[in-house]
Design a protein around this nucleic acid. Sequence first.
RNA 1: UCCGGUAUAGCUCAGUUGGUCAGAGCAGUGGACUGUUAAUCCACGUGUCCGUGGUUCGAGUCCACGUACCGGAGCCA
Length: 435
Amino acid sequence: MVKGIMNKILIKRANEHQDKTVLLNGWVYNSRRSGKIGFLMLRDGTGIIQCIVVKNDVGEEKFEQFKRLTQETSISVSGKIVKNDRAPGGFEIQTSDFTIHQISVDYPITPKEHGTEFLMSNRHLWLRSKRQNAIIKIRHQIIKATRDFFDSHDFTLVDTPLLTPNVCEGTTTLFETDYYGEKVFLAQSGQLYGEANAFAMGRQYNFGPTFRAEKSKTRRHLLEFWMVEPEITYCDLNENMEWAENMLAYIVAQVLEHKSEELAILERDISVLEKITAPFPRVSYTDCVEILKKGGFDFEWGGDFGSPEESYISQQFDKPVIIHRYPAEIKAFYMKRDSENEDLVLGMDILAPEGYGEIIGGSEREADYDTLLKRLKEDDLPVEEFQWYLDLRRYGSVPHAGFGMGIERTVSWICKLPHVRETIPFPRMHGRLRP
RNA sequence: UCCGGUAUAGCUCAGUUGGUCAGAGCAGUGGACUGUUAAUCCACGUGUCCGUGGUUCGAGUCCACGUACCGGAGCCA
C-alpha cells in the first residue's frame, strides 16, 4: 500500500498524475467482473474513476476480496494512473492493492430508478449520487459567484439576526419560538437589519437562512431557505435593477465556465443559459397586465400575479424579466412610492425563464421619516418595535435600495430541476422534517 | 386550509367485468466469462396487497372513513 499525503490524491486531479502510483480513498460506486478482470468504479465525492483489478496482478486472495465488494463499501485503492480511452473520464487506475475499511451491507439506493418519497427518506444517502453531487457543486458555485460579485464591487458581508422580535413585512406566517418567556420569531428576511448595516458600511450584503411557516406544498417553496440580500445606499430603483441583472448574469456565466461537467450530468441545455446576459427586459406591472389580457387572462389591474400569470409572462422572454412598479396595495410598507403615481411603489421582481417564476424581489426603500411612520401606522404595525428602523431616517437618511435573491429557486432554475427540494442537502418542507 | 391523484416484494411497477392473481424487472446470493460502461448468461428468494369497517358465496379489485405521500391553489424567495 502506498502511504503518505504526497501520494494521496483526489479523483478530480487524477489527470495531473498520469503514470504515477497514487493512493485514492473513497467508496465503491459500482463494480463489475468479467472472469479474472474486475472493474471497480471508485467515488470520492470529487469524481468517479475506474479501477482495474486483474487477478494475476493482485493475487488470488485480493481478487476474492474484490468479489465481495458491495455498493458504498469504503475502500482505499493504490495503483498507477494510466490514460485509457475505454475508461469513463479517460483515465483509470491499474490497481496494485486495496484496503477495505467497512463493507456496506444492503445499501438501499441501487443504480436503478427510485421514487421521490423513497429518495427523500434516504436523503442522507441520496446525496452520494452523481446527480445530487452535481447539484450541490452547482449550488456552491452559485453561492461563490454571488459572493465574488459583491466582494469585487466593494460590498461587505454583514450578518443579520435570525431571532427577531418583530415581523418584517407582516404578511407571512412565521415560526415562533421562546426567548425567556417572550415570543420571538425566526427571521423571514434580514432586510431591515441590512438597511442599518448599509448605512454603516455603504454597501452591504447579508446571506443566511430565512424561515417561512407557510403550509406551502409546491415545487417552489421551502420552510427554510437561503437568501442573499444586498442593500445599497445612494441607490435608486433603476440602479437596483442594474445591480440585480449584472449579478444574475455573472452567476450564470460563472456556472457555465466552472461547472460544465455538472451541467452535463444534469443534461441541462447550455444554449438557454448562454443567452442570460445583461441587460434584461424591463416591463412595468401595468404593461404586464396588458400582456396578460392579450394572452387571454381574466386579470384586473391591482391584483397580484399568481403562478400561472408569472409563468405566462416569463415565457414571453428568453431572459429573466424584470417587472417593476407594482400597485402599492399589494406590496410591503417600506417600499418607496413612485412620485409620478402614488398608487405605485418603486419595487421590482425578477422572474426566471422557463417557468421558474420569481427568484428576486426588491425595491427602493422609503427614505423619509414622516412617510415611513405613516406607512407603519397604515399597516397597523407596532411603531415602537420599529423605532430603530425609523432612526435610519432620522440620522442622515439617504435614498437606498436592495433586493433579495432566493438561492434554492436560483439553483432550481439554473439546473432546471423539477423541484426546489433537490437544491439543498436537507430540505425543510411542510410534511417533511426528517432526515 | 381547500382541490385533484396515488398506496401491491428491499426498489420501480403490472394485476382484465369481483372468480389459481400473489406476478415481472431490478437489487441481493451462488456460478461462468481478461475490457466492462445501469455488462451479459445460468440458478435461487421474497408479501400485514396502507389501516379499519362494509357490500358479496367470494375483495388486491367495489363502497365509506382514516392515515401517509404526490401535484396544484393561497403566501412568497
